[in-house]
Design a protein around this nucleic acid. Structure first.
Lengths: 195, 195, 195, 195
DNA sequence: GATGAATGAGAGTTCATTCAT
DNA sequence: GATGAATGAACTCTCATTCAT
């Protein structure tokens, strides 16, 4: 992937609306028809914006995708960092899983596609940094609670609960608490601790 | 996706070798550089075959991808159907997880990309049938062992253990037994049964 | 090329400053990065002017280029017409060559690019008129001094001395007198007269 | 300018015809309507070839232009290197000027446009090498004949005689010998030697 | 007047697919 | 059958120009 940094920052209100429309159009197409359908022309048309305007704000298709990904990671990271600092193993675990569920249960098709986009990017400093901080937050939490092999456990837990939430979302589930319950059962079994 | 059925030719040895080369080339490019890099010309070149020959055996790009996916699902389905018929809950569970681990631990980048390809296809009867049978095998197994909400449980278990195996593979792990152990802990916690 | 006539506005001081800035920005970009880099947005930015203002004063990109070309030709024409009216063949020749050297030795990259621009315009009455007057001045001079085939000689002399000066300038030479000396040797040889 | 190296070398006769058609179409458009009119689509259409074919053989517009330029320089270089090795100052001079005249008198509009293209390229090793060898051939010749300041003289002579020939060609002249005569007069005057 | 967001024609380029050899 | 040259629809992106603020 190439040219990922955004082009200019919105000053006027009109600009901000244009950027928001482009982002939302990209998200919708990505969720509904997959990465291959995300062409700059399709995005511009869906956003009700000319192709020229799209290029005023983004240097290319990949930059819009990276923007969406950054947004998603930022939200998740906020949730996870807050959650893992909560006192008490059970409460913190539950908060962490709730954060993951929220992130992947809503718009699961989009989340799934963005997960694939993430594998294609790989060399953006900001995104890499977020991924690292996300991992560190979970690892730190596990270390504080004396979990053995915390790096592997963190990786396993995030991967499997995320997949569970996403699959549930794709199947149409919306009851966050119910999904978190199932995630929690798996995690407690995995860690050998009963939350 | 369009034109997914393979062309019927593969009778002679040379044909079979050509087809295998095309498939392997596609798999490698898919794993190494992603779906976007899988162009028919790139595949033909990597396979050491002319673009004309490629079209002799496959009606188009998507048919090669569908072929890879069918292969992967066939192998997994065989493993899972055999495993779930094993006597004893614990042994059957372990066999099932071993099948999943084998399928997603080896060539995890390819498996990950094929998982994404699977979401793009969706309307191929054979693939849909395989997915259904895979689900039914797991659901049937859970029903036979009195697990409540077996449809949801089947979906959750497959999703999360598959993700765990794939992530482990992407991180470079190759010890299948170790990965299966972790998968098993999660599953037993999820089901509330100690295997 | 299209829409070449300047817009009539340049009355106030601010206007004149804006126009000058646009012209100079165009000249610099043309000299440094070639005609292809002369885009209206690039010119506006370099001139520190909004794109809207640029179109306030010029009907389009080509009009700015035509303006630069007219300026250059006007200056050259003044020099040449004055020079060719000087008494004495040698003094007049030298004055004429000095005019050419001055015009093409300073900012030779700009001069070279404008020479190319000139071939692209071709249908502007004012520019065509200047070219004609330039030719007539030199032809008249040669006629007055009994040079045979004055039309061809005028064309040859201007072409070759201009190229010599421009090339010298591009090579970094700045000593006008030295360049004029070399031009004069070529001209005297060409005409068979020793100045 | 970017991507200047040719893409693949013609194997079949059909390929060679396609390449020739693309080159000739480019040359014609360049001569008739200038560099700005040389678009890949225009070239393909004029060549009676699809745009895809153009990109099979050239990585982009600039590569076709570079190809034309290389061809022109190769032909000129052959002529000049042979000419400057001729025994006798006068004969060698005349041969050299004949080479220049031939190169710039035929298709002068094309030659003029290519001269502009040359200023835009600048960083192609092969073209730079040719320019260097061209200069060295003329400098060497002047050195062998005891001309003072041979580098400057070589530059001046090539620049001015080339311009003379090109201008004559643009004016419709075709009599090579007549043009060479005029070039020779200028050169002998410049060098202070009567050939 | 000045600004700069928006427009869209058109240029560059790729790639799935066909078909003459 | 195999080959690879040719095709052209579709995509990415730029830039001259307009117009609401």
């Amino acid at each position: 992937m190439a040219k990922i940094r955004p082009r200019k920052h919105a000053v006027q209100a009109r600009s901000r609306a244009t950027i928001a429309a482009i982002r939302e159009a990209t998200a919708r197409i990505l969720a509904e028809r997959g990465l291959g359908a995300v062409t700059t022309n399709a995005v511009a048309e869906r956003a009700g914006v000319s192709i020229g305007s799209l290029y005023q704000y983004f240097p290319g298709r990949d930059a819009i995708l990276a923007d969406l990904l950054r947004d998603k990671l930022t939200a998740l990271l906020d949730d996870i960092e807050t959650a893992t600092e909560a006192p008490g193993f059970d409460a913190a675990t539950r908060a962490m899983l709730t954060g993951l569920a929220r992130s992947y249960l809503a718009r699961p098709a989009l989340a799934s596609a963005l997960l694939y986009v993430e594998t294609l990017i790989g060399d953006d400093a900001e995104i890499a940094g977020m991924r690292r901080r996300l991992g560190e937050a979970v690892v730190g939490f596990l270390v504080r609670h004396d979990i053995s092999e915390p790096e592997i456990a963190a990786r396993d837990i995030v991967a499997m609960t995320r997949a569970l939430a996403m699959t549930a979302g794709l199947a149409g589930e919306t009851d966050e608490a119910a999904v978190v319950d199932r995630m929690a059962r798996a995690v407690s079994g995995y860690l050998g601790r009963t939350p």
